[in-house]
Design a protein around this nucleic acid. Structure first.
Lengths: 214, 214, 214, 214
DNA sequence: TATGAATGAGACTTCATTCAT
DNA sequence: TATGAATGAAGTCTCATTCAT
């Protein structure tokens, strides 16, 4: 532990650790809040999972509620902004753009630990209304906006038939959200439930949407 | 929303209503557990909403956990069995059968307070694994089985193109589950979010599925 | 239950039962208080053991404390007064009087359920100081007074050597009290403990006292 | 009696005394359990008497029951083992050995706060059967065994007349147990009762036993 | 900065007591 | 008089938060 073979003083490592603390705590908190919910998670567990003591957690976050808010802020929004940027320069067909969106959603968000945030917001929205609003504004709203543009692009180009766009966007998003919600709630408890390959499911989903829009 | 906080406005104290109490308590518990989660709901709140005192609740349910279990048992499974029965005798086209399933799902479940159970299970599955398994066995499994039959019926008759049925069933169910999950989580907190008419959304969903299956 | 084969109306039986109620409740309460202590005994148990409902108990005793006091009053004192009377007319030797006292103590008190009162007072004296004082005045004091007279009689007649009477009385009483305390506390839990025949023990006790006094 | 309610009069709040806490809590618990019984003692009282808060008690003992068990384990058995050791090397007459046993019993146990354990076990044996058995095995059994040897030694050497040893052992022990039981139950409530000097009483007891055994 | 012992508000649960029937 | 459903004060235990070290 305290024996450093390298002659370099341990200051840099300590500094790095010190700066890494909040991130480690946020990761631990995300995982535990997702798994057990906000109320059923004890701060001591979060601290232990991050490898620090209970008191240390409170040096970085003034309360359990603030820790929760930081978890949401840390994990929300980033991916949507990225997606916006990357979708903007797309030059292929709208069908292909839709397929690309679904694929990217999985690799950048749905398949990562950050996806647990979705279930977390579902569970705790009523107890943290201002966070729910924030999540709505930063994640849900922009995501829908992005998809509205994708669909409108297809309609405008004549590739898709004219449809009522907002409801359709809900239908595109629902299976994505549902998939991650499922993965972090019932799925871990139910070995009996048949496991569906996420990628295959998403491929089929994109296919169904494209066919339904022709 | 505007549901009566107390069953009778001018009810006297200490009325004896042994028969009605369990049901009133279960209704109150469902609403509060759905809204705030199991841990964040106090038994005293449940009792108050049912119009009784804290102690009375424990006359009917030996613990908060048992109350929770009773809430799930009370609200799970009933509707699925009904749906099975009514779908069995259907004689129209499979496209119409699919549309009928979606419509019935809304009138019999999605639009009723029992739909809150869906969000409740998402939130509490990890804390009540045995209940999650029960819910999987009694509700999720049978629902998927029912839909598998509906789709297979269409494929067998040549009305639907051949598809991998299990993933498709997930795609049919996802928007339904997502809708109620949404209604009991983010929606109440976000007036800014555009409200989508459920019936219109479900009509479009059925339409997209049918088109995607031709 | 309600079918009475006898043509006699059930009024007399009811009347008899009504008058017997307090006694049945007191018996039940004595047994349970002795077994589990005052605080750990629930009034509902007492009522159930007496064959009535919880509410009925409160028709006869205004509170659990008053029930306890009634139990003590009911069982205290009676035996001592009897003993006084019977000892008064004794004409044999003082050694024989001492033996007779010990024998009578067992048949009239130590071997009856009322003996549980001894353990009860030991356990609850601090929580019911005025009852402890009452018990001291009605039972302990008179018992010691009685024995003091017995011993003094022997000394006066020259049958016993001169001793300090009050401490000796304690020594005569201790094994009696200890025996019943034991029977209602550790003995029921410890089958491993060798069972001593009470009568033999008391015979030996009287013998030791008499020998020690010669 | 005049024992310090708080360990240090001007002790600051929130002192960290991890080592000393369990012992202080056990002492406080012994005193209160003896005085009021297990059920009637509130954990908050125990904590207050030990000079800590309610929550601190649960840092050291996981429940009130475990605290009780720890109190018994802490105070049981120690003295018996000591007595065995010291009696083993005795070289005087058996009469003197008996007197020495009684004296030692008082200085090492009967006159110390640990003597309250005797009354505690009498009161709570039925509610903690496994502890009663433990107490029987660790304290009562060995004590009787020790005294059996003492008496048998006297009989073997011809100093005592032959008697049935087990009942006699009960007679030797009864006044000792009775004395401490008394001191922690009725005595504190009854100033009217004549106070007997314990040492004088025990001297007389030993004398009576020795005389009765000649 | 980091620790973890200490705190005390708050939640579940029990049960003596009340009261409508 | 008898019942037992209903009540609510009180007790055990948890855990977010504080603070001496």
């Amino acid at each position: 532990m305290s024996s450093t073979p390298s002659p370099v003083p341990d200051a840099p490592r300590r500094t790095r650790r010190k700066e890494a603390r909040p991130g480690e705590l946020l990761d631990a908190a995300l995982a535990l809040f997702v798994e057990k919910g906000f109320a059923a998670t004890r701060v001591e567990e979060v601290a232990a999972r991050a490898g620090v003591s209970k008191g240390t957690l409170f040096l970085y976050f003034p309360s359990k509620e603030e820790l929760f808010k930081a978890v949401v802020h840390e994990n929300a929004g980033r991916h949507v902004a990225d997606a916006f940027r990357e979708m903007a320069g797309f030059t292929g067909s709208s069908a292909e753009l839709l397929r690309e969106f679904v694929r990217r959603w999985w690799t950048q968000y749905g398949g990562t630990p950050a996806a647990g945030l979705t279930k977390l917001m579902v569970s705790e929205a009523a107890n943290f209304p201002e966070l729910a609003q924030y999540y709505q504004d930063e994640v849900v709203g922009p995501s829908h906006e992005l998809l509205r543009r994708v669909v409108q692009r297809g309609i405008d180009s004549g590739e898709f038939r004219p449809v009522d766009v907002p409801p359709l966007v809900h239908l595109i998003i629902a299976p994505l959200v549902q998939m991650v919600t499922w993965r972090y709630s019932l799925a871990p408890c139910c070995p009996s439930a048949q496991q569906i390959d996420p990628v295959a499911l998403l491929e089929l989903h994109a296919e169904m949407m494209v066919r339904g829009l022709k």
